[in-house]
Amino acid sequence: MVAYTILSGLLFGLYFSLMAIGLNLIFGVMRMVNLAHGDFIMLGAFAAFFAYTLWNMNPLVTMLVVFFLFIILGGALYYLVVPRLLRAHDPEMLSLILFFGLSQIIQALAVIAFGNNQRSIDYTALGSGTVYLFGQGFEESWVVVASVSLLAIILVSIYLYVTKLGVATRAVMSHREEAASAGISVHRVSAYAMGIGLALAAIAGVFSPFMIGSIDPTMGTDLTTTSFAIIIIGSLGNPIGTIVGGMIYGLSLMYMESYQPSWSSLVPYLLLFIILLLKPSGLLGRRMRNA
């Protein structure tokens, strides 16, 4: 039981890291909290649902399509609203309200388009077998999703630490003004960050039917708070620090579900609340920032 709880906590931890990493990337670059984050996850989930039920498309293929679609969508969204916001008196608060409005729009459109029903995908779409890890059996889909999540996080790290655009992104994250005066196009870097952030949310959405359960158009609000909790636990503004938050969250959730199931829905909020009050920059906040 203990080994199973820990291992499933780690598998889900990887998935939760993927779920939250886009929110952290956008926050790190723009200092804006994308309150519509969860709604982009929801859109990814419905993409997976329709692709699978209409064309029997494998979610892994859907993931690739969705990824590129949302990069374009995110870039467009950036140029549409963010430069205007940054000129305002109080961009932080206004962006929060704006993304909240966007979240309402997406939810409303989703209800109009998809209907307000719970949907689910046949869980065997990502494999129906059982995978044994350290003597414990897990659903194959969990292991597939965890592996893909890990791969995605590694790719994000490579992007941030190896590619030219990624290095520029990190420069903007740590010293926005200096980066701009060093000739980095802050708008271009931010537009990419927004695109990649939304795309990562959407691919997390593609896998959500296998990890979170049935999907519906209003699922986004809870996912936004969960994701925010994860990046707060890990390290706000440091995408790679998200993985720490994801792991801690995954483990605590699995622990509660195994031993105190009726209280498990409290977990993200309780963690968020405690960390916010104790250390608002995240558990790894300062150390990671200095590194």
Partner: peptide, 14 residues
């Protein structure tokens, strides 16, 4: 209605 006030919020902020 949710759509309308969502659009309203975005427009107000901008």
């Amino acid at each position: 209605f949710q759509l309308i006030y969502g659009v309203l919020i975005v427009m107000l902020v901008l």
